[in-house]
Amino acid sequence: MTQINTHTETSTTVVETPPGLLRRIIRQRQAKIGLVLTGLVVIVAVFGPLVLPWLTGYTSTEFVGRPFQPDGLFGTDNLGRDILSRFLDGGLTLLVFAALATGLGMLLGTTAGMLAAYQGGWLDSVIMRGNDVLLALPQIVFALLAITVLGPQGWVVVLVIGITHAPRIARVTRAAASAVITEDFIRASEMYAVPRWKILVKDVLPNITGPLMVELGLRMTYSIAAIASLSFLGLGMQPPTADWGLMINENRIALTLQPWGVILPVLAIAILTVGSNLITDAVARASATVEESK
């Protein structure tokens, strides 16, 4: 009985090749919900600034009335600016900065992780001990230290969040790559004297995309949270820029009078991070099943 079962199972898997990682992700209900949620916020953030002039009639920094009045659709903020305008204008920087920081972290982290796994020896020790040092400071404290020295600027925030992501990504990459580099096809490439960087990019990297995609999703969620948090502390984006984190900070004293200035950006950030977390969770499950089916 069991024999027949395993036989039919193997034959079906041979006939129809197992679906790729992307299709496995999309198939999950979680991923669909996550995609819709993130898509919603991304559309608002990307197209908000474009439709701003004719939708509200105000720019995001223009003073249109008295502070905390219910003028317009969602009222005015602490300086009498239109909340809807600022909301529509305030998401794009957050998304771009989060994407840049995540990209930087992934680049640094995967490079360091793959090098450490492939080279081994002293380079491995140096990279991993360097990681330990960077990991000894909580991300937010590291960011605050950098901001004290370099000032609250956009590029500082991107750089510091990217750098603090790198060691965490490097650990995952190193663990995943260590399992790959013992494979025979790597040995074969080495014998053909393929350059080292080419082995890493063409042979190792494609085999660790699963864990790296999980890491990408995770770090993106954390980047959004970290950058929004820094803006909320008043140490990220600086006034008069319209920014969701900053809006929450500026308007929270008027939570009873004019809650929209806080509620809109809080909702947007919440939907965005929940959405990206759902996608990440789906990616993790999908890549786990890919690993099992191998």
């Binding site: 949270a225 929004a228 909320f232 809080v266 950030i269 991070t273 929940v274 990206s276």
Partner: peptide
């Protein structure tokens, strides 16, 4: 809850 930033 795990997805939400602490200040949210």
């Amino acid at each position: 809850l795990a997805a939400l930033p602490d200040f949210v």
